[in-house]
Structure formats: C-alpha cells, structure tokens
Deep mutational scan, measured.
Amino acid sequence: WKITIYDQENFQGKRMEFTSSCPNVSERSFDNVRSLKVESGAWIGYEHTSFCGQQFILERGEYPRWDAWSGSNAYHIERLMSFRPICSA
C-alpha cells in the first residue's frame, strides 16, 4: 500500500508518502489534506483524527481536490485528517 498526500490542491505544496496508517496528519505538520494520490492498495480516509467521522473509500488513482473523494455527500467535507489501508485476508 502506498498513498501520497499534499497540503495544496492539484498535488502542490508539501507532500508526504505513507505505506501504513496515519491517525493524525497534523502530527506530520499538515493542517489538512488538500489532494492525494493512491499509488497502490485501497485506503479509508476519515474526516477527523483517530479514524473518526465521515469515511471515504480511496481506490488507486488521483484526487486533485477534496470533492474528488468527498463525492456527492449530503454535506460537503473539505477535511481529511486520518487514513489507513484496507487490508484483505
């Protein structure tokens, strides 16, 4: 599993790669995730830290803005603060 997060939209700004769970992006000096690329595996992104709040399934691909992973939710969530890989047995 591999995911790359960015602190600006369209894959700009600070970037960081992960191959395992991140319970709080702010502990990695990110205020928020504004864009991301899922390089391999599937991940679950969460609205809040500690894997809480609205969940987003993140499959392999590029997500240049928050609405790319938020989709058409009843209330739009511009925040992604934690994530972890989906492990299959």
Rank of each mutant, 00 (worst) to 15 (best):
W1H: 13
W1Q: 14
K2I: 05
I5S: 01
I5N: 01
I5F: 04
I5W: 00
Y6C: 01
D7H: 04
D7L: 01
E9F: 05
E9Y: 05
E9H: 05
E9N: 05
F11D: 00
F11Y: 12
Q12S: 10
Q12I: 06
Q12L: 09
G13L: 00
G13E: 00
K14Y: 06
K14T: 11
K14E: 08
K14L: 07
K14M: 08
R15K: 13
R15E: 14
R15F: 14
M16N: 05
E17C: 08
F18I: 07
S20D: 15
S20I: 06
S21L: 07
S21E: 11
C22I: 10
C22V: 14
P23C: 07
P23A: 11
P23L: 07
V25H: 06
V25I: 12
S26L: 11
R28P: 05
S29I: 05
S29W: 05
S29D: 11
D31A: 08
D31G: 11
D31T: 08
D31E: 10
N32S: 12
N32V: 11
N32I: 13
V33C: 13
R34S: 05
R34K: 09
S35R: 01
L36S: 08
K37C: 06
K37R: 12
E39R: 09
S40Q: 14
S40N: 04
G41H: 03
G41I: 01
A42W: 07
W43Q: 01
I44W: 09
I44E: 09
I44F: 09
G45N: 00
G45V: 07
G45A: 12
Y46Q: 00
E47T: 10
H48D: 13
H48A: 09
H48N: 09
H48F: 11
T49F: 05
T49K: 10
T49R: 15
F51N: 03
F51M: 03
C52E: 15
G53V: 05
Q54Y: 11
Q54E: 15
Q55A: 13
Q55Y: 07
F56Q: 12
I57Q: 09
L58I: 08
L58T: 00
E59A: 10
R60F: 07
R60T: 14
G61E: 03
E62Y: 08
P64F: 03
P64H: 09
P64Q: 07
P64R: 09
R65W: 03
W66S: 13
W66K: 15
D67C: 11
A68Q: 08
W69M: 11
W69I: 14
W69A: 07
S70L: 13
S70F: 05
G71L: 11
S72A: 13
N73T: 10
N73E: 14
A74S: 14
Y75I: 13
Y75F: 12
Y75S: 15
Y75V: 15
H76F: 12
I77F: 11
I77E: 10
E78T: 13
R79V: 09
L80T: 02
L80D: 01
M81A: 09
M81F: 04
S82N: 01
S82T: 01
S82H: 00
S82Y: 03
S82K: 02
S82G: 02
S82L: 01
S82W: 02
R84E: 13
R84D: 04
I86P: 04
I86L: 14
I86R: 12
C87L: 11
S88W: 04
S88I: 07
A89S: 15
A89K: 10
